[in-house]
Amino acid sequence: MIVLHASFPIDPEHREDALDLADHLVEQSNREDGVIDYRAAVDVQDDNTIRFFEQYEDEAALEAHEDSDHFQRLEAELPDVLAGEPDVRKFEVSDATELEL
């Protein structure tokens, strides 16, 4: 399984546009084959940071996602809404266990 965590600092003047882009991306991405889960959330300590949490079955699913129209739209419009450099981390996970709380 491939897991991505991405953090995007958003220009406050373009926050609503960024949230609309994120919402569309999440909706469309969760329909893709090979996507286990795709979510976005606003950081609780900085409401101008959007964090993405993505899980893919494999590298092929991630590559297909990056080739999708909705991801390409994000790539094209992202520079207009950013306030800094994104931080994107990729993890290759061999096992995941749900914890009971």
Rank of each mutant, 00 (worst) to 15 (best):
I2L: 14
I2Q: 07
V3H: 03
V3L: 09
L4A: 11
A6S: 15
S7A: 06
F8I: 05
I10P: 01
D11F: 06
D11V: 09
D11H: 14
P12S: 11
E13R: 14
H14R: 15
H14F: 12
R15T: 11
E16N: 13
E16Y: 08
A18Y: 03
A18W: 05
L19Y: 07
D20R: 15
A22R: 01
A22F: 06
H24E: 13
H24Q: 12
L25A: 05
L25G: 03
V26F: 04
V26Q: 03
Q28N: 11
Q28W: 01
R31M: 11
R31D: 14
E32H: 12
G34Q: 05
I36A: 03
D37V: 09
D37M: 07
D37Y: 08
R39P: 00
R39W: 09
A41N: 02
D43H: 12
V44Q: 07
Q45A: 10
D46T: 06
D46Q: 06
T49E: 02
R51W: 02
R51G: 04
R51Q: 12
F52E: 01
F52T: 05
E54D: 11
Y56H: 09
Y56G: 09
E57P: 00
D58W: 04
E59Y: 04
A60L: 02
A61D: 05
A64E: 07
H65P: 00
E66N: 13
D67I: 00
D67M: 05
D67G: 02
S68L: 03
R73N: 10
L74N: 02
L74R: 01
E75S: 08
E75W: 01
A76Y: 06
A76R: 11
E77M: 07
L78W: 07
L78I: 08
P79L: 12
D80V: 05
L82E: 06
L82M: 13
A83H: 07
A83Y: 07
G84M: 12
E85I: 09
E85W: 04
D87T: 15
D87G: 11
V88K: 08
E92A: 14
E92K: 11
V93D: 07
V93A: 14
V93S: 10
V93L: 10
A96G: 08
T97N: 10
T97Y: 12
T97H: 13
E98C: 02
E100Y: 11
E100T: 15
